[in-house]
C-alpha cells in the first residue's frame, strides 16, 4: 500500500512531468504601502525602504523591480539581485499601474488622475510618449509583442495601446470598476477583475471582445493565472477570500479564506501568494490542495506582489 504522502508526491511529479510548461521557482516580493517597503516574502525577511506609499510593482526582464508612488510623483527602481534602491524617477502625474516593455528599456506608467498612460525611459524617466485612455487607469499588463492593456476603472473598459507608437488601438467594455488584469500564458485571453460588479471578464485578445463574465466574490481586486494556464486566481477584497477558477469554462472550483482585504496575488510554482492589505501579511496557498499553508507577517499595508525569476517576471 502506498502511503498518502507518496501518492501526493507521485502525483505532483507526474503533474510536473506531464505539464508542457516547466514550473520554475522565483523570488516573491511584496510592496507595502503604509510601511513604504519592498520585502521578500520569507519568514523574518527585512523590508527594503523604498520611500512613502508604494502602490504597484513590476519586474523587468533584467530582474529590476519598479514601484509607483502615486502621492510622491515618482517611480522607484530596485535591483532585485542586491536589494539596493538604485534611483527614483520623477513622474509628472499620479503614477499607479506599471508595466515593463519586453526589452526592459521602457516603463508604461498609468497616470491615475491624468487619464493617460505614459511611456518613460526605465533608465532616466524621460518621457518617450503618451496615450490618452479612460478615466482612472488602474491595472496595466503588457504582452510579449508590446501591446498594453489598461483597466480604465471609472470608464468600465479596457484600453488597448500599441506601445511602439503609443496609439490606443481599441477599447473593450467590461464590468463595473475594472482594476486588476492578467494575461494567460499563451496571451490569447485577458482576465479582468471588476471591483464593483464583483465579476471576472474574459477577453479574447485576438477578437478584442469579452467572451465570458463570471461572478466571483465581493470586490475582486487581484487576478493571476497559473503557469500552465489552467487556473485563474481572483482575490476578493470585501469577502476575504481567493477564488480559484478552472480556466476551461471558466468556472469557480473553490474559495479559499485568506486575510483581511486581500489585494495582489501572484503565483510561483505550485504556490499562490496573496497580499492581505488590512492584516499586514501574505498568505501562501497550496494550489494542489487549495488550502492556506502559511501566513507571513510583512510591512504594513501590503498591496502588490511580483515574482522575480532568472528568465523574466510574472505578477
Amino acid at each position: 500500500m502506498i502511503c498518502k504522502a507518496t501518492r501526493i508526491a507521485l502525483g505532483l511529479w507526474l503533474a510536473a512531468w506531464l505539464g508542457s510548461v516547466p514550473v520554475t521557482a522565483g523570488t516573491v516580493y511584496v510592496a507595502s504601502q503604509q510601511a513604504g517597503t519592498l520585502t521578500r516574502v520569507a519568514p523574518g525577511a527585512a523590508g527594503i525602504s523604498v520611500g512613502p506609499a508604494p502602490a504597484q510593482a513590476a519586474v523587468g526582464p533584467d530582474g529590476l523591480i519598479y514601484l509607483t508612488h502615486p502621492d510622491r510623483r515618482s517611480v522607484t527602481v530596485v535591483d532585485g539581485r542586491t536589494d539596493a534602491v538604485l534611483r527614483h524617477l520623477a513622474f509628472a502625474g499620479q503614477p499607479f499601474g506599471l508595466a515593463v516593455t519586453p526589452d526592459g528599456a521602457s516603463l508604461l506608467v498609468g497616470d491615475w488622475s491624468g487619464d493617460r498612460v505614459v511611456r518613460i525611459s526605465a533608465l532616466t524617466g524621460a518621457v518617450e510618449g503618451s496615450a490618452a485612455v479612460g478615466r482612472d487607469p488602474a491595472g496595466l499588463v503588457i504582452d510579449r509583442r508590446g501591446r498594453l492593456y489598461v483597466a480604465d476603472r471609472e470608464s468600465r473598459q479596457i484600453s488597448i495601446v500599441d506601445t511602439a507608437t503609443m496609439v490606443r488601438i481599441a477599447t473593450v467594455p467590461v464590468g463595473v470598476a475594472p482594476f486588476a488584469l492578467a494575461l494567460s500564458p499563451a496571451e490569447d485571453r485577458l482576465y479582468v477583475a471588476n471591483v464593483r460588479s464583483g465579476d471576472l471578464s474574459v477577453i479574447d485578445t485576438q477578437a478584442l471582445r469579452t467572451i465570458a463574465t463570471v461572478p466571483v466574490g465581493a470586490m475582486p481586486y487581484g487576478v493571476a493565472v497559473s503557469q500552465d494556464g489552467t487556473r485563474i486566481l481572483v482575490t476578493n477584497q470585501q469577502a476575504g477570500t481567493m477564488t480559484v477558477l478552472d480556466a476551461a469554462g471558466p468556472q469557480v472550483i473553490a474559495n479559499v479564506a485568506v486575510g483581511r482585504y486581500p489585494e495582489g496575488v501572484a503565483i510561483d510554482g505550485g504556490t499562490a501568494y496573496v497580499a492581505n492589505w488590512f492584516s499586514d501579511s501574505v498568505s501562501a496557498i497550496d494550489l494542489t490542495r487549495l488550502v492556506e499553508t502559511a501566513r507571513i507577517p510583512v510591512g504594513e499595508g501590503p498591496r502588490s506582489l511580483v515574482v522575480r525569476t532568472s528568465g523574466g517576471d510574472r505578477s
Binding site: Q33, Q34, A53, A55, P70, D71, Q94, F96, W112, S113, R135, D136, R153, E154, A177, W277, F278, G301
Partner: peptide
C-alpha cells in the same frame, strides 16, 4: 478632477 473619484492610495 472630481474629488469624488476613487483614489490610488487607500487608508485603514
Amino acid at each position: 478632477h472630481g474629488a469624488l473619484a476613487h483614489g490610488p492610495t487607500p487608508q485603514k
